[in-house]
Design a protein around this nucleic acid. Structure first.
Lengths: 160, 160
DNA sequence: GCGATGTGTCTTGACGTCAAGATAAATCGG
DNA sequence: CCGATTTATCTTGACGTCAAGACACATCGC
């Protein structure tokens, strides 16, 4: 009997004709995602990053040397709008973690390049981040993690 | 091989020592929550609501007649800060869906009351909302939904 | 070549959110 | 009773986000 169960119970009393069978599942997913996001944010904050800026730096880092991508490619990886991406890049550029360099092959566009400072910070932050992710999933044993991952994979496939 | 798998693959190439076993699970959860949130938002928008305002109205509605709660109680149900709740109430009050009435038992506080208009809107919106939730979970069969719900319940219990 | 169309990026304006602190009223201790 | 403390709500300021559109350059068709 968790908080979500109590919500379903209230609906059953007030609007008994509602088919709330999916509501519990989606409600738990939303609450869990909120909790997890806040936990993740806290660890990144101790490295001077938000999960927004972390996403951009991590995307550049894992693309491999020379750690350069166009804003458009970054956009595609991160599920945000173009305006949001401009904001994120502006902020990272001000902090000296990335820089805009001209794209020799297409003068309409720029390339976002990780600086040495940015590379150092993301390499430290991602190490702490994966340790934190491991901690956050500790309540599930290996079989449960595998089962959950498989279900989420199937569910997610419906949207991407 | 979905988008999350590709991310893990990149990390394995660039930073093979990283233990990314939890990263896939949490990444899928985050992406899924984002997709689901956007889908939910679209349906609510067609009733003139955001998921923020829907949350408040739904919380009042399922509390039962006379559909009144203090801002503090609403806060507790919705995982947001007090400033956010004030904003939401302000906006709903401007739209005439709730009103602030004095609390006869505690003059420090107010009660947020659903108006007739608010009651009508939330009753329609929640009906469309549950139908939408049902649609969004259609890719999973009943057993899968039950298994996923059980795993999410256990996972969520670690945080609330 | 060159005008029309397409593409990549940035700007603008409106929201939603949080943290921290301000304000007002109830309650507690003596 | 009355000052001190606690509690409930709201205010402020800073961010992050999106949708829609502006702008600059590339490319296509003639």
């Amino acid at each position: 009997m968790d908080r979500v169960d109590r919500i379903l119970q209230q609906w059953a009393r007030e609007r008994p004709e509602l088919d709330t069978r999916s509501m519990g599942l989606l409600g738990r997913m939303k609450r869990l995602a909120t909790h997890l996001g806040r936990e993740v944010e806290q660890v990144l904050q101790s490295h001077g990053l938000s999960s927004s800026s972390f996403d951009v730096l991590a995307t550049l880092r894992r693309s491999g040397a020379p750690y350069r991508m166009s804003p458009g490619d970054l956009l595609e990886m991160t599920m945000v709008s173009s305006g949001t991406m401009t904001n994120r890049i502006d902020q990272l550029e001000k902090s000296g973690l990335v820089e805009r360099v001209i794209n020799p092959h297409d003068r309409r566009s720029v390339l976002i390049a990780l600086t040495d400072k940015g590379l150092g910070i993301i390499d430290e932050a991602v190490f702490a981040h994966v340790a934190n992710q491991k901690r956050l999933t500790e309540t599930l044993d290996d079989d449960e993690k595998a089962a959950l991952d498989a279900l989420l994979r199937k569910f997610l496939a419906a949207f991407e």
